[in-house]
């Protein structure tokens, strides 16, 4: 038996240019088998271009992308290996949901009984006979997901699947992806809002302006963004000097209020006590993932517009 490769997607030094615009710039990352990897970056960061290249719809200007050991366009029996959704609106408005899935099923020899199965799975069986024109955005998202699941693939690639989903739909998607991964599947899911995926993903790959920013387990990303401490003192200037001497980075916010980075709240209190500085306020501030994410993208020149 051949060894099962550890990575399901490899992006190697991928560059994609459109005329003078460089959408993706020397980007490398991998998606590990069995993981749910979040692919994050602000709008316009190059996420969709990267995904379209991985899925063989766009050709790299340089570099390459490998999916399950080969490039997607040479993947045999693609829909049984990889399921993907790129846009929530890729349907003919005049065709009903069932026929949309059936046309895809026919093209790869998937039986119609599987069409009915995935329709039930995404809870669209009641609407399957209606033309897509009358579907809500959430229903279209689920129909897209149904098409990706037709071939019972081992890898899912989803571009902004949470767009247009209501909170209930988001929860459904989250549970679904977790279950998919628990059964041995791998997922690459993009988003421009970390909060949408933070409860779903194990790892994140962050890009901005087409370039790699970070690849890490989710908790590492949180740790990477320094937690700050808010401290108020009538002797703010003196405290600031003491803390700086103690290795912290201190910013005066005004009115005796300091924002301290690089030391824990307890240590701030100790330094103050040891030097007899009166404190009026000492608050450790949890950095949310979103802030950590924004901090990382800002380090690389702000969100692309």
């Amino acid at each position: 038996m051949a060894a099962v490769p550890e990575t399901v997607i490899e992006v190697e030094r991928l560059t994609k240019r459109y005329g003078s615009l460089t959408a993706v710039d020397d980007l490398s990352f991998t998606v590990a088998r069995g993981s749910v990897t979040g692919f994050l970056g602000p709008n316009g960061a190059g996420k969709s271009t990267t995904l379209r290249t991985i899925l063989g719809l766009a050709s790299p200007t340089s570099g390459r992308t490998i999916v399950l050991g080969t490039d997607y366009r040479h993947l045999s029996d693609a829909p049984r290996r990889v399921g993907a959704v790129l846009e929530a609106s890729d349907f003919h408005p005049g065709r009903n949901g069932r026929d949309h899935l059936r046309s895809l099923a026919l093209s790869s020899g998937i039986p119609f009984s599987r069409v009915d199965e995935v329709l039930r799975l995404v809870e669209l069986d009641a609407a399957a006979g209606r033309r897509v024109k009358g579907y809500s955005l959430g229903m279209r998202q689920r129909l897209g997901l149904a098409s990706a699941l037709l071939g019972e693939p081992e890898l899912l690639v989803l571009d902004e699947p949470a767009n247009g989903l209501d909170p209930e739909g988001m929860r459904w998607l989250r549970d679904f992806l977790r279950k998919f991964a628990a059964n041995g599947g791998s997922v690459l899911v993009s988003s421009h809002v970390l909060a949408e995926v933070e409860q779903t993903v194990d790892r994140v790959v962050i890009i901005n302006r087409g370039r790699f920013v970070a690849e890490a387990a989710l908790d590492e990303i949180t740790a990477r963004a320094a937690a700050s401490v808010r401290v108020r003192s009538p002797e703010a200037d003196r405290l600031s000097e003491l803390l700086t001497a103690g290795g912290a980075t201190v910013t005066s916010v005004g009115d005796g209020l300091l924002s301290v980075l690089g030391v824990a709240a307890a240590r701030v209190g100790e330094i103050a006590a040891a030097n007899g500085v009166v404190l009026h306020e000492l608050v450790p501030e949890e950095t949310s993932l979103e802030e950590a994410f924004l901090a990382l993208t800002q380090d690389t020149g702000g969100a692309a517009t």
Partner: peptide, 9 residues
């Protein structure tokens, strides 16, 4: 897009 995802050739 789905058409070519299902039939990359």
């Amino acid at each position: 897009r789905p058409t070519f995802l299902f039939t990359p050739a």
